[in-house]
């Protein structure tokens, strides 16, 4: 299906490191909102007219987030250069370029949130784009990593229904992330986010059911689906704690971080399912055993 990989090992490791660092950026960004530090630095791109203001109080979170974002931007820029030199698959290089474009837009959105005093629309867009960029870094790391080759070798024919189920989960998770960001940045009612959480849980339960029933031998997909179920159960627990203890910024931020991991995992699962050859009939008898 895919051309034999010639990606150097160090590049795969570098891409993985970039993905991990982007996750750290999401945590740093989450802490900014959780501690209400978004406006602790009123100017942008400088901070109180300086590059390095005293890292006290809310400045620690806001300027810290900017610094982590700056490093992430450099990492992604370098990743693009490395991909350009070392990666033969055009679509992987394209993913890197989209990621880089996303980072530029994300930086501008971050600046606008500061200059326009946190308008909810821009703050929500900033939060959502951050999640999307993280997914892209995970996707590139996955494409360059050993797991890609491993999955390629174990790809089996799956039914159309398994693929559709796997595809619906990241869509559900994205809607749920939007509802969470909307609640967080506008102070709107929590109920849509709660309903969304159960919709995601049901979606992931169905995904697990379909994978177990119709594609149980597709081990990478099974592992991803089960991991998703574990994550979403943990996430509901974390969400409950975050709701009961909003004064614990680390808990609320952990909820944001786990949300990002769920999205990334669901995208990888859908991608893996999407790479499998598909049958249109979906019954236990006709499915791949």
């Amino acid at each position: 299906m895919d051309k034999q990989l010639e990606t150097p090992k160090w590049l795969a490791h570098y891409a993985l490191f970039t993905a991990c660092f982007t996750f750290f950026l999401i945590i740093a960004g989450g802490m900014v909102t959780s501690t209400d530090s978004g406006l602790a630095v009123p100017d942008w791109p400088l901070a109180y007219g300086m590059w390095f203001p005293p890292m006290v109080g809310g400045i620690f979170y806001e300027h810290g987030h900017r610094m982590v974002a700056g490093v992430t931007g450099i990492l992604i820029l370098l990743l693009n250069l490395f991909l350009w030199k070392n990666e033969s698959r055009l679509w992987v290089r394209r993913l890197g370029q989209i990621m880089l474009l996303g980072v530029v837009i994300q930086a501008l959105l971050g600046g606008l949130t500061v200059i326009l005093l946190l308008p909810p629309q821009i703050s929500i867009a900033h939060a959502m784009l951050g999640q999307a960029i993280f997914c892209l870094t995970v996707a590139v790391a996955h494409a360059l990593g050993k797991s890609w080759q491993g999955n390629t070798n174990s790809l089996q024919t799956i039914s159309e229904s398994v693929w559709r189920m796997c595809l619906s989960v990241p869509i559900l998770v994205s809607v749920q992330l939007f509802l969470g960001a909307y609640y967080r940045h506008t102070g709107a009612a929590l109920m849509p986010h709660v309903i969304g959480a159960f919709a995601v849980l049901i979606g992931i339960c169905f995904q697990n059911y379909y994978v177990l029933r119709f594609a149980a031998d597709m081990k990478p997909l099974l592992r991803m689906s089960m991991r998703l179920l574990l994550f979403v159960c943990l996430q509901i627990g974390l969400g409950l704690v975050a709701w009961m203890k909003p004064e614990w910024p680390s808990m609320v931020t952990a909820h944001v971080g786990l949300g990002a991991l769920i999205l990334a995992q669901s995208v990888l699962a859908a991608w893996t399912a999407g790479r499998c050859p598909r049958k249109t009939v979906s019954s236990p008898a006709s499915s791949v055993a």
Binding site: L39, G49, G58, L117
Partner: peptide, 21 residues
């Protein structure tokens, strides 16, 4: 002897957030 931001979250008026470093 430390810096502050002054964030006026006005709704009817124009909000402002100023630096006093």
């Amino acid at each position: 002897a430390t810096l502050h931001n002054v964030n006026a979250k006005a709704k009817a008026n124009r909000p402002f957030n100023i630096a006093q470093p």
